[in-house]
Simulated scan of single mutants.
Amino acid sequence: MTSERDDFVNSDLEVIKAHYAASDRGDLPGMLAPLAADVAWTEMAGFPYAGTYIGPESVRDNVFGRLAAEWDDYTATVAEVIGLGGGVVIGIGAYSGTFRATGNAMSARFVHVWRLAAGRVHQFEQFTDTALVQTAMRP
Rank of each mutant, 00 (worst) to 15 (best):
W71I: 07
A76L: 12
V39W: 05
L67P: 01
W41S: 04
P56V: 03
D73K: 11
A68C: 05
E80Y: 02
Y74M: 14
A36P: 06
T77L: 08
V78E: 14
P29I: 02
A69H: 04
Y74K: 04
V63M: 08
A69P: 07
Y49K: 02
A22E: 05
V81A: 06
A22G: 03
I54C: 11
A50N: 06
P29E: 11
Y53I: 13
L13Y: 10
G83H: 05
H19I: 03
D27N: 06
T52I: 05
G83D: 10
L28I: 14
G86K: 12
W71A: 10
N10F: 02
V59K: 07
V59L: 11
H19E: 03
R66S: 03
P29C: 04
G26T: 09
R60I: 01
A40P: 00
L32S: 06
I82N: 05
R60C: 10
D27T: 06
A45R: 08
A18Q: 09
A18Y: 01
I54S: 12
A22I: 04
R60D: 13
D72I: 13
E14G: 01
P48A: 01
G46W: 07
A36Y: 06
I82Y: 12
G83P: 07
M44Q: 15
V78P: 07
P48M: 02
M31Q: 14
L13F: 09
L28R: 03
V88H: 13
D38I: 03
H19P: 00
A50L: 09
R66C: 03
Y74W: 15
T42E: 12
W41A: 03
E14H: 10
V63C: 13
F64C: 08
T75G: 12
P48L: 04
G46D: 08
F47P: 03
R60K: 15
L13A: 03
H19C: 05
G30N: 04
P48T: 00
G55C: 05
A50E: 15
E80W: 02
I54N: 12
F47C: 07
G51S: 08
L28H: 00
L84I: 05
R25Q: 14
G83W: 07
A76K: 10
W71Y: 15
I82D: 00
A68L: 11
I82P: 04
A22C: 08
D38P: 01
V39L: 08
E80F: 02
V39Q: 06
G51M: 08
L84Y: 10
V88Y: 13
K17M: 08
L32M: 14
L84E: 14
A69S: 15
D24V: 13
Y74C: 10
A40Q: 14
E14T: 09
N10R: 13
Y74H: 14
L84Q: 13
S23W: 13
D12S: 05
S58R: 14
Y74D: 06
D12Y: 00
N62V: 09
P34K: 00
M31R: 04
V88D: 12
F47G: 01
E43H: 02
G87M: 10
A50K: 03
Y49M: 08
G46K: 05
E14S: 14
G51T: 01
L67I: 15
G87D: 04
L32T: 00
I16Q: 00
P29L: 05
A68H: 11
A69Y: 08
P56M: 03
A45Q: 12
G51I: 02
I82W: 10
S23T: 09
P48F: 10
D12A: 05
A33S: 07
R66M: 12
